[in-house]
């Protein structure tokens, strides 16, 4: 693109880093989980393998997980740069990253079942643009695989089966239900993102966006902060454990948000993220790029 001539190559490197190396807070959370399990237990063995895989992926510069997921981009930009050009470059970067084996060809035509082969397709990558009142550019990338995506779900309260009403208790019950239903299928120990309210689409989108939050980022909403803590504590009493083998750590983190809703609707959306929570930030300032 014209404003940043090296943009496409920057994004390829951004994708590589995201695919092969975990954020520090995620890796620390895995270390803490490892410390909690009994040495030699199945849970301990799983966490050892995970830690070894993290080390090897970083060293070899190979994807942590073969499912390099949906490539979710959030771009915050000043007035000026063309979002059309930025979008085109991001798509090109995804193709290039697929060629270099940082990404798997992960776009299958849903009607013909034909894999596009180059890593891109309809809504792959998924790019969201937002203009902001600053002169730098902030791009967030999340790679979210299909195994954990399949564990995501949405409830409409009241839920008769679970006896979950339209209140904080009802929300707590359905999020725990989603975690219990996921068992080991989402490659736990996982990260839970939830959203209360919104419509069906905005609610799920907001739930997924929670995975961008750093683990030590405290929720500004006191009710949600307390709810996150309760959910974290209770989910870890379920003893599902790493990979569903049993153990002390079932979830590594819980983050929530809320949106206003229509009087008739009360959605609670839950997004499950695997232990390989691949997210990174890229910054462009004064023509220079930085990846965090």
């Amino acid at each position: 693109m014209k404003t940043y001539p090296e943009f496409c190559e920057w994004v390829v490197e951004f994708i590589r880093r995201t695919s092969v190396d975990l954020p520090v807070d995620v890796e620390n959370a895995i270390d803490v989980a490892k410390g909690a399990e009994d040495p030699g237990s199945p849970a301990d063995n799983v966490l050892n393998v995970i830690k070894e895989n993290i080390r090897i992926s970083r060293e070899q510069s190979t994807p942590l997980c073969q499912d390099t997921g949906t490539n979710v981009f959030y771009v915050y930009h000043p007035a000026g740069p063309s979002t059309r050009e930025m979008s085109e470059d991001i798509v090109e970067a995804c193709k290039e990253a697929t060629k270099r084996s940082y990404l798997r060809p992960n776009a299958v035509d849903s009607l013909t079942n034909k894999n596009s082969g180059n890593g891109v397709g309809r809504a792959q990558p998924w790019i969201h643009f937002e203009e902001w009142n600053r002169d730098d550019v902030w791009i967030r990338l999340m790679l979210k695989g299909g195994g954990c995506e399949n564990c995501g779900t949405q409830y409409a309260l009241p839920d008769r089966r679970l006896k979950a009403g339209r209140d904080l208790r009802g929300i707590e019950i359905v999020v725990l239900d989603a975690i219990n239903n996921a068992q080991g299928l989402g490659c736990g120990p996982g990260f839970i993102g939830f959203c209360v309210g919104g419509d069906r689409a905005s609610s799920l989108s907001e739930a997924k966006k929670q995975h961008f939050k750093k683990l030590d980022e405290a929720n500004e909403v006191p009710e949600l902060r307390a709810l996150e803590e309760r959910l974290y504590e209770k989910a870890n009493t379920l003893s599902i454990g790493p990979m569903g083998f049993g153990g002390k750590t079932t979830v590594l983190g819980v983050k929530g948000s809320y949106l206003h809703r229509l009087p008739a609707c009360f959605f609670v959306s839950v997004s499950y993220m695997c232990w390989a929570c691949r997210r990174r930030d890229m910054w462009i300032k004064n023509g220079e790029m930085r990846i965090d």
Binding site: N53, P63, G147, A276
Partner: peptide, 8 residues
């Protein structure tokens, strides 16, 4: 096998 342990 351990899910996500793809490089290993």
């Amino acid at each position: 096998a351990v899910g996500g342990a793809a490089s290993l």
